[in-house]
Every structure is written in structure tokens, then in C-alpha cells.
């Protein structure tokens, strides 16, 4: 069933929307969540919470052309929140590794609240991505949005591990330089 029809079911408050969503995207959503929470029962819990949030968000949202991105964003947020609130962060070496890499992008990391609001930061990140060529952008997003391992990225893009690591290193530096240049304080 195509996404537009699934969204129609949500809009018509037809509960079969949930099972169609699970059929089509459940496995991928669970996988994404598992990368973050590193625990299958919790990933399933996050998946179910995602369906509930999607049910509550459509309408007003109508993600006909980006349903998977919409759902994935929800489960990513729920899963990261789970780590934060349950202090599971320490249990996931993968997330610790990714967090350390991300920290290298921040001009002056500290423990204070973020001094840039989300709208400004969103513009900065998307502006940075728009300047990357498609492959670099996709690799960056696979690593820091989909939270893929380096090995998975190598396989997906048919690149060597060293090439992927160097490419990500340069991307992080570029992002950091851009944030400094534009005067962001994170």
C-alpha cells in the first residue's frame, strides 16, 4: 500500500492505518530504535509509542510524501529520550561513540543549555548539508541521523572503512567551521 493511502487511513481515523504502517515500516523502525536503545523489548516499546504518536499527529500533519521520514524522526526522538531518561546512554557504546563524534562539531561544548534555538540550528544544519555533494550528505545522514555503524556505511556505499572515516572527519570539521564562522554558540 502506498504512503498516501496509509495517510488517508489515519485521516479517516481507521485503525487499520496502524497495522499497515507496522507492515510496511515496522521492521525498519525497530532496527533504527535498536541502534539507539540496544535492547529489543525497548525497541518494540519505542515502535509502539511511535505508532501512537503518529496516530495523534496525523492529522494535523499529512506526511504523504515523507511518511517513513516522519515516523523515523518520531522513533529516533522517542528512543533518544528513552536513553536520556532511563540513563541507558552508558549502556550503548554505539551512542557514546556517536556522541563523541558529534561533540567534535561543537565550537565550545559545555554543560549549559543550548543558546541557539532549534529554528536557527535547523537552518544552520540544513544549510551545511545543502553544500555537501549528495554522497557525502547521505553518508553524514546515515551516520548521524540513521545512526549506522561505520561497517554498515562501508557496505552500503561500497567504500573502504578508512575512506568513510576520513570523509566523516572532514564533514564534522566543515560543520564546526561553519558554526564558528556564522557565530553560533552551542
Amino acid at each position: 500500500m502506498d504512503d498516501s493511502r496509509i495517510v488517508d487511513l489515519y485521516l479517516q481515523r481507521d485503525e487499520s492505518a496502524l497495522s499497515h504502517t507496522a507492515d510496511k515500516y515496522g521492521s525498519r523502525l525497530r532496527t533504527l530504535s535498536y541502534r539507539i536503545v540496544a535492547d529489543y523489548p525497548t525497541a518494540e516499546e519505542c515502535e509502539n509509542d511511535t505508532y501512537i504518536q503518529a496516530w495523534n499527529s496525523i492529522p494535523p500533519h499529512e506526511p504523504r510524501n515523507y511518511l517513513y521520514a516522519f515516523l523515523a524522526r518520531i522513533i529516533r526522538h522517542i528512543s533518544l529520550n528513552f536513553c536520556r531518561h532511563r540513563d541507558r546512554l552508558k549502556r550503548s557504546a554505539h551512542i557514546v561513540e556517536l556522541s563523541a563524534e558529534m561533540e567534535a562539531c561543537i565550537p565550545a561544548p559545555n554543560d549549559y543549555e543550548c543558546s541557539v534555538d532549534d529554528i536557527v540550528l535547523k537552518d544552520a544544519i540544513n544549510s551545511f548539508l545543502s553544500r555537501l555533494d549528495a554522497e557525502k550528505r547521505n553518508i553524514f545522514i546515515r551516520r548521524y541521523w540513521y545512526l549506522d555503524s561505520i561497517e554498515e556505511i562501508c557496505k552500503r556505499f561500497a567504500l573502504s572503512e578508512s575512506k568513510v572515516k576520513v570523509l566523516l572527519f572532514r564533514c564534522r570539521n566543515k560543520l564546526r567551521q561553519q558554526l564558528i564562522k556564522e557565530g553560533y554558540t552551542l
Binding site: R84, S99, I106, N110, C114
Partner: peptide, 10 residues
């Protein structure tokens, strides 16, 4: 902001 928060901001 720390790396983990920045990861969330992605």
C-alpha cells in the same frame, strides 16, 4: 551543549 544533545539535534 554536549555531543549527545547535538546528536539529538540532528
Amino acid at each position: 551543549m554536549r555531543g549527545y544533545e547535538f546528536l539529538e539535534k540532528m
